[in-house]
Design a protein around this nucleic acid. Structure first.
Length: 397
DNA sequence: ATGTCC
């Protein structure tokens, strides 16, 4: 059950005071009608990750964040898992050669989609971005972005992907934060565009482009892996953005409002979402329900497990120029390898800052939201692929 | 999160 702190509905335990302070700062804007903090919340840039802020006739680029349209897609294959460890290593290698991971990486296969055609590219700030967008479509990026292969409770194989709008969304966000005169700093007041502001519609349209771009990229990655690696049909698909804003109907908060979600999964009655855990835990397909608590939560739930330590706390500090380790992190490669071995997860790429030990346990996090979602599928990770050089040798570790 | 600093 959530608690209510100064009109913000707050999920999770412990409550991160820095994140709470950030959403309270956001809530001070006169157009804000309601705020919610998910159980996987933590401090973000301006608005916390796991923060949901609803506005009357206004939208916030800070609330959507830099990775506009970041989200999750999971597809169920017409295939039951019979893979040996050796076969999983081969599958992992095939996916690595098909999908590009990491900042600035380009897709080896040039892909595009009619849904990305439109007047968008005539907007001055988008003209120069088309080439990058074309090169990066279908690539995964870095940080906590991944491609996972799962097995569900019936033995079916699922592909799950988590990434957003890559350089395109980042440059759109950067452009509007600058043009709108956003205050700088982690705890700065979020930038808000009210309807009628000259940047309101350009931002909304640009956000929508980044959203379509992210969707098409995730779709391509899922389809490419299903067809080119598994040669299997897709039986089911679950998809959503978790960094995005929608104009939605919420009767108890004044009807049509813009709901800005940063690291929060929309979960209206019956709406399914794919919630990814850390690399070493089960992920879930959930669905929203209709009740008072769900309405108060703006029909939103977690987007992941949530960090328990920062990247630097987990991995330590490096000298960026020489690559030399300056300070030890809290997680050792041995501890990470042991966790993955225990659960028989094969990891390709990845780093210590994405280790299971750096995250909460997703099953425990979901307990906080048990009144507003139901679990539809449990997805056990078989293969996890992330940016970076391989930390482990799958033949030995 | 981000061709991680124009």
């Amino acid at each position: 059950m959530p608690t209510k702190i100064q009109n913000t509905v707050v999920y999770g335990d412990p409550i991160d005071q820095a994140a709470l302070k950030q959403i309270h700062t956001a809530a001070q804007h006169e157009r804000v009608v309601h705020t919610v903090l998910m159980a996987d919340h933590h401090k973000g840039y301006g608005v916390p990750i796991g923060g949901v802020v609803a506005y009357r006739e206004a939208i916030s680029p800070t609330g959507v964040g830099y990775d506009i349209g970041c989200g999750n897609m999971a597809v169920k294959l017409d295939l039951r898992n019979t893979m040996t460890r050796e076969e999983r290593i081969q599958i992992g290698r095939q996916i690595q050669s098909l999908i590009s991971f990491g900042v600035g990486e380009k897709n080896l296969q040039r892909v595009w989609d009619d849904r990305l055609e439109g007047d968008w590219w005539q907007m001055p700030h988008l003209k120069g971005l088309r080439r990058t967008a074309e090169e990066q479509l279908g690539t995964v990026g870095g940080g906590n972005h991944y491609v996972d292969i799962f097995e569900d409770e019936d033995g079916y194989v699922w592909i799950g992907v988590h990434f957003g709008s890559r350089g395109l969304g980042h440059q759109i966000a950067t452009h509007f934060l600058k043009e709108g005169g956003a205050a700088k700093g982690m705890d700065a007041e979020p930038l808000v565009f009210e309807e009628g502001h000259p940047l309101f519609n350009p931002y909304l349209e640009s956000m929508k482009l980044a959203g379509v771009y992210a969707t098409v990229g995730r779709e391509w990655a899922c389809h490419a892996i299903a067809e080119q690696v598994f040669a299997a049909e897709i039986l089911d698909r679950v998809h959503n953005h978790h960094n995005y804003a929608w104009l939605e109907e919420h009767p108890r908060f004044g009807g049509e409002i813009y709901v800005v979600r940063k690291g929060a999964t929309p979960a209206f009655d019956g709406q399914r979402g794919f919630i990814g855990a850390s690399m070493g835990d089960d992920s879930y397909i959930v669905a929203g329900v209709a009740n008072d608590e769900a309405a108060e939560a703006l029909y939103s739930t977690v987007h992941g497990a949530g960090r328990v330590m920062s990247r630097t706390a987990a991995r330590g500090k490096y000298d960026r120029r020489t690559g030399r380790q300056l300070q030890r992190g809290q997680i050792s490669e041995r501890a990470m390898a042991d966790w993955l071995k225990e659960r028989d997860v094969l990891l390709f790429g990845g780093d210590l800052d994405e280790a299971p030990q750096a995250y909460k346990r997703l099953d425990e996090v979901l307990v906080h939201h048990q009144n507003t979602i139901v679990i539809k599928h449990v997805l056990k990770p078989l293969i996890v692929l992330m940016a970076g050089k391989d930390v482990f040798d799958p033949y030995k570790d």
